[in-house]
Nucleic acid binder design. Structure first.
Lengths: 335, 335
DNA sequence: TACTTTATTGCAAACGTTTGTTATGATAAT
DNA sequence: ATTATCATAACAAACGTTTGCAATAAAGTA
């Protein structure tokens, strides 16, 4: 890499001091118009670009936020990222994206890296593996604003933006019940996530509301396409097989449908299926999948807005807020 | 944000100089074991984290590469990102991801931002809108290594890593011809991309190889699900409708299939369809879609490896290389 | 003429590190 | 006793900026 043009280079070439150059570039009135123009002209000619690293160091603020995402290659998260970037972009903030790839170790390392890079704030959604959260405590200790999105725990002094998992699940199950289902299986996420608990509660409450006893044998821990395909064959072969499935995400739901079709089970006549995410796949699979839209883009925007306000306000002792993004059930052919 | 612990803080508390602290932390033998231990202990206690910003400034190297991606929310690109991050991670490099969202303006702005952040190198895939490439010239001028991936032009002193679009297209069309198709429509990408030209050429050559005259009325400029749905109805209603479709990406192919099914056209009996990408959707749609796998993960890894070698070698006058990633046709039910 | 303003610019410190050079004692060698 | 050697640690400059303050010279005022 070549030496990049600096203020000093310009100063030397023009026989003035660096301060004069700096002020000229910002049109400071103390500097004569003649000098100002000369400086600006040469700067342009040489292709001068201010060194943001130096600026960051000086200002001890980087205008950068760190974004921890479990998996970028996941439609829900990438729409969230888009929402985040939209707001960041409008406010001249950079976004440093790091991935955990659902690995705890990688998450910790990446969080350290963000700390080292002195991000002004952080948006985080932790990995499925994460049980220990002390790497986030370091941010809190340094009073670096932290907002958890989607996957959250509430024992931190941090804001939270989550999908309304409870209502989303309730609506989905309620819908299945209204369509006549009586034995609804729930393919669920790990229970240590707030998300997992809330959706289960929505599932249970919807059942209760229809006077159906909750049968925990109908709840499976299964949240990927592959595992859904794997476990569904035996589930769907039972005599008392479910007549409805509510899955924690679309791909899982599609895995169920795939297996059902292989077994000759008609959807939606004999089995109704609802997913969660309203991904592109929901509109592509056959039959098209009824799914809960999580509005990831809005979630991202909201999370970034909250983070920004925290960064700007600097009010140390704020009380953390929890913002819930409303969901919407998109009914399609699968139910 | 609170003041972060610095070397100076440690130095003052211990009544030593900053250089002593710095050396202690790196176990420099010039410093007595006693002092070293005292420093390391206090550093740990206070939660000292080296300020990478300051380090970057000092070293005028950031161990960060800039990654320009058209749309993160696109399976192909996110697998590429994963490949890139894998290699970056192994080499202790940070990745600063920016999106153009297919907007030229945003691309330029984001490239400037990367320059300002003094990335050590850049991986770029430009937007569909981009016709003018002078923002990349700035990198070249500063001798900052640049590697184009997937979308590329060759008029720059930059390495290129692309999918073997020609062979991919050739294989796909050849496959359709072998299955008996005689009128194959090509739903194609904009022609100013290398990718667009190469795939068209593959299409043409495969036809020639089977002694079928190239009919340019069978080539449509169409590369999204929505537009595919829109234009396909009229295309498929023609008397001399195509008996095969080769689409530039999976979603477009799926749009065609959707329309065909609505019109009661049987796939693959009456219409065979092949996509390009081998995305998740290809395995989800019905019938499952035959598609060209682009091995995005490998592409990302390769691109990052090349970039790294450029960054490390510092050989200014290298001759740019073009690396082509082999594709593979994944045959499924749609053909 | 002598003093005050005003316009213009330079100086130096600071942000947090690293690192070559120098300084301070103490110990060892002559 | 004098000098050389060594271990230890401090000093200072550098990376590229910004900015309060000081300096200079020209112009205005009494």
């Amino acid at each position: 890499m070549k030496h990049q043009v600096t203020i000093k280079d310009i100063a030397e070439k023009l026989g003035v001091s660096t301060s004069t150059v700096s002020r000229s570039l910002k049109d400071h009135p103390d500097i004569s118009v003649k000098t100002r123009n000369a400086v600006k002209e040469l700067a342009k000619l040489l292709g001068y670009k201010p060194n943001l690293i130096a600026l960051n160091l000086k200002n001890s603020s980087t205008n950068t936020i760190g974004l921890l995402v479990p998996e970028i290659d996941h439609h829900f998260f990438s729409t969230i990222i888009n929402g985040i970037e939209e707001v960041a972009y409008q406010n001249n903030f950079n976004v440093l994206i790091v991935q955990s790839n659902e690995s705890y170790l990688r998450e910790v390392l990446n969080t350290q890296a963000l700390l080292g890079n002195r991000v002004d704030g952080m948006l985080a959604s932790f990995s499925k593996e994460t049980k220990d959260f002390s790497h986030f405590q370091q941010l809190i200790d340094n009073e670096i604003p932290l907002v958890f999105y989607d996957r959250a725990i509430d024992k931190f002094h941090a804001d939270i933006v989550v999908v309304d998992d409870y209502s989303g699940a309730y609506d989905a199950v309620n819908h299945l019940l209204n369509r006549g289902c009586r034995r609804i299986a729930f393919y669920s996420a790990p229970q240590h996530l707030l998300l997992g608990k809330d959706r289960l509660q929505g599932y249970i409450n919807a059942l209760e509301h229809h006077n159906i006893v909750y049968d925990k044998n109908l709840v499976y821990s299964c949240d990927t396409f592959e595992s859904a395909v794997k476990i569904s064959t035996s589930i769907l072969k039972k005599v008392d097989r479910p007549d409805g499935v509510f899955a924690v995400n679309d791909l899982t739901a599609i895995g169920v449908m795939k297996t059902a079709k292989l077994l000759g089970i008609k959807i939606p006549e004999e089995l109704k299926v609802v997913g969660f995410e309203n991904s592109k796949s929901a509109g592509i699979c056959e039959p098209e999948l009824t799914s809960v839209d999580q509005f990831g883009y809005n979630l991202g925007k909201k999370a970034m807005s909250i983070l920004l306000s925290r960064i700007k306000n600097e009010s140390i002792n704020y009380v953390p807020i929890k913002h819930v993004i409303k969901t919407k059930l998109m009914v399609r052919a699968s139910s």
